[in-house]
């Protein structure tokens, strides 16, 4: 098995005053070495929770079950101390909202240096390494960026610096959480370019979490579509885009402005009071009778493709 990451039946819930939120339900997928897996979903799909689970950054109150195997080792069973050797080193995170995740009072170069030093690089070579990382991120003036505070940089540049911090530890597994969120069109395009460039030049395995379909198409090898905490479709990116099976996936693709901006009626059921049958039933353009009461299971269409829809289950 060439999988670097194998998630099996991941269930994450949060007990709240209003009931239990099932943010993630029976999610299973695997990522092969050197490949990028994209988890696509909108607000309320539970995609960020999966990213946080892999990095064990969930709040204390959360209830997790299932397994997440990294190189065969179930990281959910590790102690905090054991896992801290992996987190930030072998497993690295590019967080969303770089403006909030960068220290506003520390120069960008120093923040990247922190990560470099963790690797054990000699003090004298750190600056050189930082500049090397910055120029790999296609900064035209790495020295200026290294000496600047985050507030002096644009949103897109901050995203690149945050990516640099994650890459500085030379990780083998990279989690990218919504790298293009909140960026304007130009910054988004350049970020997608950079990430593509990084992917082409590195052999690391990636888990990309986003709602940006363009990013998913460009960067991903395999793709999972999440809806209300469940995987509704999984498979190779190009296949899904050329032939989407689940009506939600089709709806997402048609909602893009260039495809006519067709809306999906209704709204996501959220995490509380989930319906008994198919979660998408009320919004489905081809609702089936079974979908009202029976919850569809995910089933294999082919060796690489899975769909959770009654129309495709045998």
């Amino acid at each position: 098995m060439n999988s670097i990451l194998e998630v099996t039946d991941l269930n994450v819930s949060f007990p709240t005053r209003n009931g239990v939120i099932h943010a993630s339900q029976q999610v299973s997928f695997r990522i092969s070495k050197g490949k990028s897996c994209v988890l696509v979903g909108e607000t309320g799909s539970g995609k960020s929770v999966i990213g946080q689970s892999v990095l064990r950054l969930l709040p204390q109150k959360s209830i997790i079950s299932g397994s997440i195997r990294y190189k065969g080792l179930d990281i959910l069973t590790l102690s905090e101390e054991e896992f801290s050797h992996l987190r930030g080193r072998e497993i690295s995170l590019v967080p969303q909202n770089p403006s909030a995740s960068l220290d506003p009072l520390m120069k960008c170069g120093d923040q990247i240096a922190e990560s470099v030093e963790l690797r054990g690089v000699k003090k004298s070579s750190v600056t050189e390494e930082v500049l090397h990382i910055l120029s790999n991120l296609r900064f035209l003036d790495p020295v200026r960026v290294s000496l600047s505070l985050p507030s002096r940089l644009s949103g897109g540049m901050r995203q690149r610096v945050a990516t640099g911090i994650a890459l500085a530890s030379k990780p083998q597994f990279l989690v990218l959480d919504e790298p293009t969120k909140g960026l304007d069109y130009a910054a988004r395009t350049s970020t997608i370019d950079i990430l593509h460039h990084i992917k082409a030049n590195r052999q690391d395995t990636q888990l990309l979490i986003t709602h940006d379909l363009d990013l998913a198409h460009r960067i991903g090898d395999t793709m999972g579509v999440l809806y209300s905490g469940e995987l509704v479709e999984f498979g190779p990116v190009n296949e899904i885009f050329s032939n989407p099976l689940h009506p939600y996936t089709k709806g997402l693709i048609s909602a893009l402005p260039r495809n006519g901006m067709k809306p999906i009626p209704g709204s996501c059921p959220g995490f509380l009071n989930l319906p008994k049958g198919c979660y998408f039933h009320k919004r489905c353009p081809h609702p089936c009778a079974r979908g009202e009461d029976v919850h569809p299971e995910i089933c294999d269409i082919s060796e690489e493709r899975q769909v959770r829809c009654h129309r495709f289950s045998a």
């Binding site: 949060f14 709240t16 939120i21 943010a23 607000t43 309320g44 539970g46 960020s48 929770v49 946080q52 709040p59 909202n97 995490f271």
Partner: peptide, 9 residues
């Protein structure tokens, strides 16, 4: 922070 936490806040 995830959307869930944002929404909760």
């Amino acid at each position: 922070m995830s959307e869930t936490v944002h929404i909760a806040i």
